[in-house]
Each structure stands twice: as structure tokens, then as C-alpha cells.
């Protein structure tokens, strides 16, 4: 039989061991916590310095008569916003932007899903080639893409009109893709969709790859055809990808600048090819109305937040598990 002192000593040693262990876990937890924070710090500083601080500076400048060549910006209240709202082109530019969002988000999502399905179903031999080919436009400069599509849609020498002429459309009926107001924004949208669909199709492809095969097996046993399989299995599981892509596409279409600018020669004819982002740019660099240009960019930011909020509110509800 062991003595009481032995038992007490063993208990003490056990307690000490546990304490030590606890301390050591806490120690490493602390270390890890601080290391993580230190590792994130450069990123946080960069984001604060180049995104958050300029954002709030921008909001501030929208209420001043800021001018590169002026000494001190003076507070002028809502004068810049008033000038912006009173501009004869304000509603036209807003309508253009909304049209672009609608056509771009809808068209971009549909094409990206179709391409995603194609990538997923294509056999392994050609899979990599197809993925590369679809992703390729993403590697091009936006200005190059703008000029490329300007040529494609050219009235006299563009391949689109050459094709229409070849199938028998009389020359007088050939559309001026970048000259008729109603066709300008859809034409820009086509160029943008061509540019980004590869990137978004990869997101959809990743989403499709994560759908468990068992669902497809069950649907096959139940006798579902390919379309029913797509509608009742693939699409519901793609809901999170649709949510993220819709929000990203919306924000992208709001900030679309380089492609519309290079495709339409600065947003024309008139302002029929001008988006809010492009309007802000021309107001700043052509008119030198800095306050007004910044006010437009603030409005753009507000639009982005509101639209993203609405989209998230609606789309998150549709996701499996949130319904």
C-alpha cells in the first residue's frame, strides 16, 4: 500500500504537469495569434493605406471645391452633387450604366454557366485546351479588347457586318453597332462578356466539381434526363457560385471603364456609350471639374453597395440550407 505522502506527491506532480501543459498550449496559442496578426499586418496596412483611407478622402473631397491647382480645398456642401444631378446627361449616363449591368450580369452568368458545363463535360484529352482557350481573353489588356471589338463591330470593315452581308443582308440595312444609340451598350456588353466569361466559368466549373456524384446517380436511377439533371441537381448546388459571380459582375460592370472608352472613342456618340465610371474620368480629365468627378465616383460607390446588398439579400435566401 502506498503511503499518503506518495499519493500527494503524485497528485502534485500531475497537477504541475497539467498546468505546464496548459501554459504551454496557451503560450503557443498566444504566439500563433500574434504571428497570425503580424503576418496579416502588411496586408491590412496596404488595404487601409490604398483603399480605405482614399475612399474616405474621396467622400470628403466630394464636398469641397478641390482642384489640383488650388491651394486649400474649401467646403462647399452639396454643390458638386447638385451640379451632377442637374447635368443634362445625368439620367442618360445612369440609364446606360443600368442597361450595362442588366445585360452584362445576365449574359455573363448565362454564358459562364454554359461554358462551365462544357468544361466539366469535355473529355480529359481536350479539357485543358478548352479551359485555356476559354480563359485566354482574360489575359488581354482591356484597351486591346476594346479596340479589337471596335474593329469587329466596324460598320465598313467589321467581320460581323461582312458576315451579315455574306448571308444576304443589304448594305443599307447593315447595323451600325457603335453608331446607333440603342445598340451601343449591348455591343459593349458583348465585348465585356467575351472578356470575362472564361474567368467566371472557372468559378462555376469549381462549383460543379464539388457536387457529390451520388446526387447524379440518384437522379439517373429516377430517370432524369440531362436537362432535368441540370435544373434539379446542378443549378441548386451552384447557388453559392451564382451569388458570388452576380455580385462580382455587378461591381465590375459599375466600374467598367477601359473597354467602353476604347470601344466608343471616349463614350460616344454623344454620351450614348458613357457609363458612370467613364463619365467620372472625362469630367475629371477633360472638364477639370474635380469636385463633380469625385461626386460621380461617390455615387458610383453608393450604387455598388446598394446593388450588392440587394443581390446578396435575394440570392443568399435561394442557397441550399438558407431557404
Amino acid at each position: 500500500m502506498r503511503s499518503r505522502s506518495f499519493l500527494l506527491a503524485r497528485e502534485k506532480s500531475k497537477r504541475e504537469y497539467n498546468m505546464k501543459k496548459k501554459r504551454s498550449v496557451r503560450y503557443y496559442k498566444d504566439i500563433w495569434k500574434w504571428t497570425g496578426a503580424m503576418m496579416a499586418l502588411p496586408g491590412i496596412v496596404m488595404i487601409a493605406l490604398f483603399i480605405i483611407v482614399p475612399f474616405f478622402m474621396n467622400v470628403g473631397y466630394a464636398f469641397t471645391d478641390y482642384n489640383t491647382a488650388s491651394d486649400v480645398p474649401n467646403f462647399i456642401g452639396f454643390a458638386n452633387f447638385k451640379t451632377m444631378f442637374n447635368d443634362r446627361d445625368f439620367w442618360l449616363v445612369c440609364t446606360n450604366t443600368l442597361k450595362l449591368i442588366l445585360t452584362y450580369v445576365l449574359g455573363g452568368n448565362i454564358l459562364a454557366i454554359l461554358l462551365g458545363v462544357m468544361i466539366t463535360n469535355v473529355n480529359r484529352k481536350y479539357g485543358n485546351f478548352v479551359k485555356t482557350a476559354i480563359y485566354f481573353p482574360q489575359l488581354l489588356s482591356m484597351v486591346v479588347v476594346g479596340f479589337l471589338w471596335r474593329i469587329i463591330f466596324s460598320y465598313n470593315n467589321g467581320p460581323v457586318n461582312h458576315f451579315l452581308e455574306w448571308i444576304g443582308v443589304p448594305p443599307d440595312l447593315l447595323p451600325q453597332w457603335l453608331g446607333i444609340p440603342a445598340l451601343i451598350i449591348p455591343s459593349i456588353s458583348v465585348a465585356l462578356i467575351w472578356l470575362i466569361s472564361g474567368y467566371y466559368s472557372i468559378i462555376y466549373h469549381a462549383g460543379m466539381m464539388s457536387i457529390p456524384m451520388s446526387y447524379y446517380e440518384v437522379s439517373a436511377i429516377e430517370g432524369a434526363n440531362r436537362w432535368q439533371e441540370f435544373v434539379h441537381v446542378t443549378l441548386p448546388f451552384l447557388a453559392p457560385s451564382i451569388t458570388i459571380n452576380t455580385v462580382l459582375l455587378t461591381v465590375e460592370s459599375l466600374s467598367a471603364f477601359a473597354v467602353p472608352a476604347s470601344m466608343t472613342g471616349g463614350g460616344g456618340p454623344g454620351r450614348y456609350g458613357t457609363t458612370l465610371a467613364l463619365w467620372s474620368y472625362t469630367t475629371y480629365f477633360n472638364n477639370h471639374q474635380y469636385g463633380k468627378a469625385i461626386a460621380i465616383s461617390v455615387l458610383l460607390g453608393v450604387f455598388a453597395v446598394i446593388l450588392a446588398f440587394i443581390e446578396l439579400k435575394i440570392l443568399l435566401k435561394k442557397e441550399i440550407g438558407n431557404a
Partner: peptide
Amino acid sequence: QRGYESADLYECMRAVSAGE
């Protein structure tokens, strides 16, 4: 010229120098 509404400056000059 046909399609003048969507012709840019360089297209316009090219059309003249090419005799179109």
C-alpha cells in the same frame, strides 16, 4: 460616307487615302 456615325478619325483618314 456610309457608316459615318460610327467612323473614327483613323478610319475616316484611311478611307480617303485608300480612295474609298
